Computed example of a mutant assay.
Amino acid sequence: MDGKTAREKADEPRARVLVRLPPHLVVLFPGADRLVPLDAGTVDEMVDALDALWPGMRERICDETPSIRRHINVFVDGRRARLATPLAPGADVFVLTAISGG
């Protein structure tokens, strides 16, 4: 928790970012797009915005602690991100699913 009230969070500026979703996630949500422009100040707010568009997406990206799931990686402008990572205007955000196997 960051200790901010809902009103303080609502007053913070939001950045327009471009979110790139993986095909494995998009197919689970009919009507979802691979490229999604959103207004969000942090990765956590971005996940909330995605969930508002496609309910249930937050549970696919985040676990109950909450943090980004182990098999999901989020990169902001080429750097690995966490839910608290701030988003600058024009940030390029990639949500990637881990690939494993043998």
Score class of each variant (00 low, 15 high):
residue 1 M to K: 10
residue 2 D to T: 12
residue 3 G to V: 14
residue 4 K to I: 06
residue 5 T to E: 12
residue 5 T to Y: 12
residue 6 A to D: 14
residue 6 A to C: 05
residue 8 E to D: 14
residue 8 E to C: 06
residue 9 K to W: 10
residue 9 K to H: 15
residue 9 K to P: 06
residue 10 A to W: 10
residue 10 A to F: 11
residue 11 D to F: 06
residue 12 E to F: 02
residue 13 P to Y: 08
residue 13 P to Q: 13
residue 14 R to K: 15
residue 15 A to N: 06
residue 16 R to T: 15
residue 18 L to I: 11
residue 20 R to C: 08
residue 21 L to N: 02
residue 21 L to K: 09
residue 22 P to E: 03
residue 24 H to V: 14
residue 24 H to Y: 09
residue 25 L to V: 06
residue 26 V to Y: 02
residue 26 V to N: 03
residue 26 V to K: 03
residue 27 V to C: 07
residue 27 V to A: 10
residue 29 F to V: 02
residue 29 F to M: 07
residue 31 G to R: 10
residue 31 G to E: 05
residue 31 G to L: 09
residue 32 A to F: 09
residue 32 A to N: 08
residue 33 D to E: 15
residue 33 D to C: 12
residue 34 R to P: 01
residue 36 V to H: 08
residue 37 P to R: 14
residue 37 P to I: 15
residue 37 P to S: 14
residue 38 L to E: 07
residue 38 L to A: 09
residue 39 D to S: 14
residue 40 A to M: 10
residue 40 A to I: 05
residue 41 G to L: 09
residue 41 G to D: 14
residue 43 V to F: 05
residue 43 V to A: 08
residue 45 E to R: 13
residue 46 M to I: 04
residue 47 V to P: 03
residue 47 V to S: 03
residue 48 D to L: 11
residue 50 L to I: 04
residue 50 L to N: 00
residue 51 D to Q: 08
residue 53 L to Y: 05
residue 53 L to T: 01
residue 54 W to F: 15
residue 54 W to Y: 15
residue 56 G to V: 07
residue 56 G to R: 08
residue 56 G to W: 00
residue 57 M to D: 01
residue 58 R to M: 03
residue 58 R to T: 00
residue 60 R to A: 09
residue 60 R to D: 02
residue 60 R to E: 12
residue 60 R to Y: 10
residue 62 C to D: 05
residue 62 C to G: 04
residue 64 E to T: 11
residue 64 E to Q: 10
residue 65 T to M: 03
residue 66 P to V: 00
residue 68 I to L: 04
residue 69 R to G: 02
residue 69 R to I: 01
residue 70 R to Q: 11
residue 71 H to W: 09
residue 72 I to H: 00
residue 72 I to Q: 01
residue 72 I to G: 01
residue 74 V to C: 01
residue 75 F to G: 08
residue 76 V to W: 02
residue 76 V to E: 07
residue 77 D to F: 05
residue 77 D to P: 02
residue 82 R to P: 03
residue 83 L to G: 04
residue 83 L to F: 06
residue 83 L to R: 09
residue 83 L to W: 04
residue 84 A to P: 09
residue 85 T to C: 05
residue 85 T to N: 11
residue 86 P to V: 13
residue 86 P to L: 14
residue 86 P to M: 13
residue 86 P to H: 08
residue 86 P to F: 11
residue 88 A to G: 07
residue 89 P to F: 09
residue 90 G to I: 03
residue 92 D to G: 00
residue 92 D to C: 06
residue 93 V to D: 10
residue 93 V to K: 00
residue 94 F to C: 09
residue 96 L to N: 05
residue 96 L to R: 06
residue 97 T to R: 11
residue 97 T to Q: 11
residue 98 A to D: 07
residue 99 I to A: 13
residue 99 I to M: 13
residue 101 G to A: 13
